[in-house]
């Protein structure tokens, strides 16, 4: 367990961010040392450490985050906003004629202009209003709820691209839709 990395991990997780497998630095995608550090010491150090301070480390495919062991509110305001914004982006991109791959490709990404167009849709505004983001510009909501939490990042062009965490959400969406009707995904 490396002290400096452990401190950086604590800071990230406590501020509600996820730790992704990869990190985007200076126009390049690189393995995230924080993720590797956690991976190498997961059972021996990090899992008991966070359990002792009341958090459960949640390790998903390509990213890690924490949740309270009390499990008082599993679907919080934060989760609602994240899910709603990701769905608005995906639906809006399809409606505009883009492929979802634009959000996956680090070289491409979604520009603020495209987001502005998506945000103009009446249905998108209704969904944002019902998710406590009334009147907020889509790009601004995305910055606060996706970028600052490590669910998306801006590439060298300044376009929005999803991290492993953002991509994992769509994996779940497609898995759910392929499952039996009425099936419920279990963590």
């Amino acid at each position: 367990m490396r002290q400096q990395l452990s401190q950086a991990i604590y800071k990230e997780l406590m501020s509600g961010k996820v730790i992704n497998k990869d990190t985007y630095e200076h126009g390049e995608i690189k393995p995230n040392p924080l993720f590797e550090e956690m991976l190498n010491n997961y059972d021996q150090s990090y899992k008991p450490l966070y359990l002792n301070i009341g958090f459960e480390l949640v390790m998903r495919n390509g990213f890690i985050y924490i949740r309270s062991v009390e499990r008082d509110e599993e679907y919080s305001e934060v989760v609602r906003k994240i899910q709603v914004l990701l769905l608005i982006l995906a639906r809006g991109l399809h409606e505009q004629g883009y492929q979802l791959d634009i959000l996956r490709d680090g070289e491409a990404g979604v520009s603020d202009g495209i987001m502005e167009e998506i945000g103009k849709g009446e249905d998108k505004q209704d969904v944002m209003s019902a998710s406590n983001m009334k009147g907020e510009a889509l790009a601004s909501a995305v910055r606060k709820n996706l970028e600052q939490r490590g669910i998306a990042y801006r590439n060298a062009k300044g376009n929005l691209v999803l991290t492993h965490a953002g991509l994992a959400f769509f994996d779940d969406v497609f898995k759910y839709s392929n499952a039996e009707p009425g099936a419920v995904m279990v963590a």
């Binding site: 604590y10 800071k11 997780l13 406590m14 501020s15 509600g16 961010k17 996820v18 459960e56 949640v58 998903r60 985050y65 924490i66 949740r67 309270s68 499990r71 509110e73 599993e74 679907y75 919080s76 305001e77 934060v78 989760v79 609602r80 994240i82 899910q83 709603v84 019902a130 998710s131 600052q148 939490r149 965490a165 994992a168 959400f169 994996d171 779940d172 969406v173 759910y176 419920v184 995904m185 279990v186 963590a187």
Partner: peptide, 24 residues
Amino acid sequence: IPKDHEVLERFSTFKGMKRQRADS
């Protein structure tokens, strides 16, 4: 829309994610 609405509860990707973003 309720935070635990059936549509939102379908996906467990971010289930239980820390509520407030605050500096440590």
